[in-house]
Amino acid sequence: MFQLGKTIVSEEILENDFVCNLTACKGGCCVDGEAGAPLEGVETEILVDIYKQVRPFLREKGIETIERQGAFVKGEDGEWETPLVNNNECAYVIYSEKGIAKCGLEEAYNQGATQWRKPVSCHLYPIRIKEYTELTAVNYHKWQICDPACTLGEELKVPIYKFVKEALIRKFGEDWYTELEVIAKEYLKP
């Protein structure tokens, strides 16, 4: 671990490679698991505000779940998260013609219906953020379902921190990411 500003960052995001391989995993991270996507407080308000614009992009099961449970729920850990359809997939999941799970929020964004892409936790994956009083932990979340992404990342030689560059900048800013690149260059020297 190393400190970067008000964050504590795991070296694993520098050492490990990762590139989503949707043809292999079929977007399983949006479908499998025991909880919805983690949400920041401000994101709960955004989900409520954009629901009418997002609704046309969602599946009927997702709409029913959101309208019954709400645009977000409090998880077992007391944190905010997206609701789940039948305790399984995220209520905002949609499927491509090939059966690949995709994000309905992101589809609405891509089609110009909203200005908000998706929860930052989803955008950052496989990085998980944990907020503490003084610092924010930035860790690599290993999940067997993502083994094909690790293999593809190794083949393409793309470290995690580069794969999620846009999301890291979204969360922490350009200056933070520039410092991370300097640290990575020094850390990864042969």
Rank of each mutant, 00 (worst) to 15 (best):
Asn88Met: 04
Ala149Met: 00
Leu124Asp: 11
Lys52Ser: 14
Ala108Leu: 04
Ile160Arg: 01
Ala91Gln: 04
Phe172Asn: 06
Asn110Phe: 07
Glu34Arg: 13
Val85Cys: 00
Gly33Lys: 08
Asn87Glu: 15
Lys171Ala: 06
Ile127Gln: 05
Cys150Val: 14
Lys74Pro: 03
Asn110Tyr: 06
Pro159Met: 05
Trp116Ile: 11
Glu64Phe: 09
Arg55Asn: 00
Ser96Arg: 06
Val48Lys: 11
Tyr140Ser: 01
Thr136Asn: 12
Gly78Trp: 08
Gln111Lys: 14
Pro56Glu: 07
Gly112Val: 10
Pro159Gln: 03
Lys98Glu: 15
His123Trp: 11
Asn87Cys: 07
Lys98Asp: 15
Lys165Ser: 03
Asn87Lys: 15
Ala113Pro: 00
Gly33Ala: 09
Thr82Gln: 04
Tyr140Val: 02
Pro83Glu: 06
Trp116Glu: 06
Gln144Asp: 13
Pro38Asp: 08
Pro119Ser: 07
Leu156Cys: 04
Lys130Thr: 15
Lys162Arg: 12
Leu47Thr: 05
Gln53Leu: 12
Tyr161Cys: 01
Leu152Met: 12
Ile169Cys: 09
Phe57Pro: 02
Gly153Cys: 02
Gln53Phe: 12
Gln111Tyr: 08
Ala137Leu: 13
Lys102Leu: 13
Lys74Asn: 04
Lys52Thr: 11
Trp80Glu: 09
Val85Lys: 00
Leu156Lys: 15
Thr82Gly: 04
Glu89Met: 13
Gly70Asn: 01
Asn110Ser: 10
Phe172Gln: 04
Asp32Ser: 15
Pro38Arg: 11
Cys103Asp: 05
Leu156Tyr: 05
Leu105His: 00
Leu47Tyr: 09
Trp143Leu: 07
Ala137Tyr: 13
Asp147Pro: 02
Glu89Thr: 07
Ala71Leu: 05
Val164Pro: 08
Glu166Arg: 11
Ser121Gln: 08
Gly36Thr: 05
Glu34Thr: 15
Gly99Glu: 10
Gly75Cys: 03
Ala108Trp: 03
Ala167Val: 01
Glu81Asn: 04
Asn87Pro: 03
Pro159Arg: 02
Glu107Thr: 08
Trp80Ala: 13
Trp116Tyr: 10
Asp49Cys: 03
Val93Lys: 02
Lys98Tyr: 07
Lys61Gln: 14
Lys98Asn: 13
Lys61Met: 01
Lys162Ala: 08
Val73Pro: 09
Thr82Asp: 08
Trp143Tyr: 00
Ile145Asn: 14
